[in-house]
Design a binder for these strands. Structure first.
Lengths: 193, 193
DNA sequence: CCCTTATTTCGATATCCGTCAATGTATCTA
DNA sequence: TAGATACATTGACGGATATCGAAATAAGGG
C-alpha cells in the first residue's frame, strides 16, 4: 500500500450497502476466508474454489472496490491479500445505529397521518371516529391542535370546540383525556405544554 | 422474546452469508434505519419508502429470518422493532477472522501444486525448470522431499540425487540453497528440520 | 354473521447478478 | 521479436431476487 494513503474514510449508507453486497455472496466470503490465512494469486483461489479464473477475477474486483483487498504485482502475478484493518473497521463502524438512522431518513411525519385525515375528515367535519387505535391517535392529535397550550378551558368550551368537528364531543373529550392530550382538574381542561 | 430462549447462537459461514445478504439491499438497510428510531407497522414503512405493503412484508420476513427483528401483535397490526442486541452481536462476531478462516476451508495443498507437478514432471523426470517463481517453488519443494531431514550430504551426493530428475543439478542445487530448503556449511548440505 | 382493515402469500414479470468462454492487455521468456 | 503466461474485460446466458397486483388469511367492528 502506498504511503500517506488514508485508510479511514467516511461511512455512509451507500458504503454500507456496497460492503454488505460484497460480502453477501458465498464465493466472496470464502475468498475472504482463504485470504485470511495467507495471500494468494488468482489461479490458486480459482483452484481452491473450483471456479474459473475469470470468475475469481470478477469477485476480487468487487472486494477490492470496497477496500477489503490489497494487491501487489510480482512478475506477471498479482498477489492479493486481505486488509484486516479495513475489515475490523467496517465491522465496528458500519452498523452504528446513528449512521443507519440518518442514512435512512426518517418516517415522513404526515404520510400516514395525512392519509388517515383525508379518509376521516371531509369538508372540515369528522365523519366517523376511527375504531382502530393508531388511526384514532392521529385524529386526536389533529383535534388537540385546535386548543392553545397552557390555557384553561371550561368543559362547555371544550364541548363547543370539539362539537365543531363531530357531534359526539363526549366520547372524543374522554379519548383526549385518556390519550393524555388534555388534562382535567376540577372540571378545568388544559392542553399540556 | 420468550423466556429461556438463547439469544447468542453459534455463528458459521451460512449464518454470515444470510446476514450479509439480508443487509445487502438498499430498502432493507433503510428499514433498519427507520426501525432504529422507533418501531412501526408495515404500512408506515411502506409509506416511508414508497413501496407496496406486499414488498415491505417480504423484506421484513428476510430481516426476521436472520433474527434482526422482533414482532408483536396488537389488534390487527404487527408492530416490528429492531433487535439492537442482535445487530451489535453480529457486527462484533460475524467478521472474526478465525470464523471466516475455518468456514471457508483452506487452500487445497496440492490443487495448484499437483497441476504444476503434472505439467513439469513426466515419467519421474523434470522436463524443464520452471522460469516462474511460484512454479519453481513447487518444484523445489517437491525435489527436497527426496532428502532426509537433519542428515549430512556431501555435494557429490546432492548432485547425484538431483541428477536423477534433471541434468542441470548445478542450477537446482543453487536454487534449493536460495530457497533455504537446503543449507550448506563447509560443503556439507543439510535439509533443515 | 358480514364487512372492513392490516398483513401475508402467491403468481408473474423485470431486473440484477454469478458464471464462463472469448478476447484484450501487460509481462516475462526464448 | 515471437510466443507464453497471468490477469482483466466483455458479452452472453441462466438463475436468483425485487416488485407489485391479486387472492388468502387474520383480527375486529357493527
Amino acid at each position: 500500500m502506498q504511503n500517506g494513503k488514508v485508510d479511514i474514510e467516511e461511512i455512509g449508507l451507500d458504503q454500507a450497502l456496497d460492503f454488505f453486497k460484497a460480502l453477501g455472496n458465498l464465493q466472496r466470503l470464502k475468498i475472504i476466508g482463504l485470504l485470511a490465512s495467507r495471500s494468494a494469486v488468482v489461479e490458486e483461489i480459482a483452484a481452491a474454489l473450483e471456479l474459473s479464473p475469470a470468475t475469481i477475477s470478477h469477485h476480487l474486483r468487487v472486494l477490492r472496490q470496497v477496500g477489503l483487498l490489497d494487491v501487489d504485482s510480482d512478475q506477471q502475478y498479482r498477489i492479493y491479500s486481505l486488509r484486516e484493518r479495513r475489515l475490523k473497521q467496517m465491522s465496528r463502524e458500519l452498523l452504528r445505529l446513528d449512521t443507519l438512522r440518518e442514512g435512512a431518513g426518517a418516517f415522513p411525519e404526515g404520510a400516514f397521518e395525512s392519509k388517515v385525515l383525508s379518509n376521516f375528515v371531509k369538508r372540515g367535519k369528522l365523519v366517523t371516529i376511527p375504531a382502530q387505535r393508531k388511526k384514532r391517535e392521529v385524529i386526536l392529535k389533529w383535534l388537540v391542535e385546535h386548543f392553545k397550550r397552557e390555557q384553561d378551558y371550561p368543559e362547555s368550551e371544550v364541548n363547543r370546540i370539539i362539537g365543531r368537528f363531530h357531534e359526539d364531543f363526549c366520547t372524543l373529550r374522554r379519548e383526549l383525556i385518556m390519550a393524555r392530550l388534555l388534562t382535567r382538574e376540577r372540571n378545568i381542561y388544559r392542553r399540556p405544554a
